[in-house]
Measured scan of single mutants.
Amino acid sequence: MGFKLLSKLLVYLTASIMAIASPLAFSVDSSGEYPTVSEIPVGEVRLYQIADGVWSHIATQSFDGAVYPSNGLIVRDGDELLLIDTAWGAKNTAALLAEIEKQIGLPVTRAVSTHFHDDRVGGVDVLRAAGVATYASPSTRRLAEVEGNEIPTHSLEGLSSSGDAVRFGPVELFYPGAAHSTDNLIVYVPSASVLYGGCAIYELSRTSAGNVADADLAEWPTSIERIQQHYPEAQFVIPGHGLPGGLDLLKHTTNVVKAHTNRSVVE
C-alpha cells in the first residue's frame, strides 16, 4: 500500500471513529477524501466538511520552486461564519470567499490569524475590503508590521502568557507558548472536538522541520505538551499544512522538532 493511500485511509478511519463516538456532533463529509496538494491548482481553494458547521479550507501556493498546501478553518456561528487564517495570499483568499459563498452561503463576518507569517495573514486586506472584521493577538499584529505583512485590524486580548485561553464565538483560542513562531495560536472547536494546530503542528508525513527561522526550538516541545494537557479530548487535529489526523500529530511534531534540534547540535 502506497504512503499517500495509507495517509488518506488514516484520515478516513479517524473521521469514521469520530462519527461513531459522537453521532450528534459529527456529520463528516462523505463526498470524498481530504484534498491534497496535487489536486488543488494554485489560485483555487477546496472546502472539506469535518463536522456539522465545521470545515477546513485548503489552498496551495508556490514557494521556492515548489507547491505547498495550506489549511485553515471555518466555523459556523449562528447565521454567520468565523474564518481562521487566510488562504495564503490575496488571490487565494478572494477564491476562498467565493467558494464559501458557493458552498455554504453564509457571510464571513470575523477572521482570526493564528500567527504573523504570510500563509496566515496574506489576504487580510481582501477580507477587510469584503467587510470582514480581522483579528490577531497584539504580538501577531506587531510582528506582521515588522515583517511588512498585512496586519489584522483588531487585537485579541488575554493571550499574552503561555497557557492563556479565551473564548471567541464558537471557538476557544489558546496560546501554548512559542513553537513554530513566538505568537502562534491554537484554535479548538469544543462542539466538535476539532483542534486546529496551525503551523505549530505537523502532518504525519512530514519528517523535516522546514521553516524554523522564527521558531523557538527549545520551547516548542513544552508548548505541545500544554496543548495535549489542555485538549486531551480532541479527536480531529488539523495541521497548518497537509493531512489531518488525531492527537498523534502532536507527538510526531515533537519528535521531528527534537530530531532537528539534535542534528543542529551535532553539526
Rank of each mutant, 00 (worst) to 15 (best):
T207L: 13
V189L: 06
D214C: 04
E101I: 12
T93H: 03
D64V: 12
A200W: 02
V266R: 12
A133D: 14
Q103R: 11
E80S: 12
H117M: 00
V11R: 06
I224S: 02
T134V: 12
Y175D: 02
R206Q: 11
Q61K: 14
L83M: 15
S139Y: 05
L10P: 05
Y48I: 10
T60Q: 09
P232S: 12
L81M: 08
S113M: 10
R141C: 07
D248W: 07
D214G: 10
A87G: 11
L13Q: 08
L173D: 00
L247D: 06
I201A: 04
K8F: 04
R120K: 07
M1Q: 03
R206E: 14
L195R: 00
D29T: 10
I20N: 15
I224W: 01
L82T: 10
P232H: 05
S16G: 07
T36V: 12
G177I: 01
R76M: 09
S30N: 12
E80K: 15
F174L: 12
V146P: 05
E203D: 04
V45G: 03
P152I: 11
D125A: 13
G177V: 01
M1L: 04
V45E: 03
P190Y: 05
K258R: 12
D52I: 05
S208G: 12
G89R: 03
G131E: 10
D79A: 14
A215P: 07
P221Y: 08
E267L: 08
P190S: 05
H230I: 15
Y68I: 09
V256K: 04
V166Q: 13
V11P: 12
Y48F: 11
A66F: 12
G158S: 12
N71T: 11
I224C: 02
D77K: 05
G210V: 13
A144T: 10
I100Y: 03
P138Q: 10
G65I: 15
A90G: 13
L97C: 01
S137E: 03
I151G: 05
G72E: 01
R110W: 10
D85T: 00
G163V: 07
N149G: 13
P244L: 06
A178K: 13
G65P: 09
A178W: 09
G123L: 04
I20Y: 10
R141D: 01
A165W: 13
T114F: 02
L5W: 13
A213M: 12
V132Q: 00
S205I: 10
G177H: 01
A25F: 06
G198C: 04
L185F: 03
V112S: 03
P152M: 01
A213W: 10
V124H: 06
R46F: 13
D214K: 09
V171H: 01
W55M: 03
N262M: 13
K102T: 14
H117I: 01
V54S: 04
I50C: 02
L159H: 04
P107C: 04
S160N: 15
G43T: 05
D248G: 10
D118G: 11
V75M: 04
G210H: 14
S208M: 09
A87Q: 04
A200H: 04
A200G: 04
S16P: 09
A21H: 13
P23E: 07
G123H: 02
A136P: 03
G89L: 04
L159D: 02
D52N: 07
I84E: 00
K258D: 08
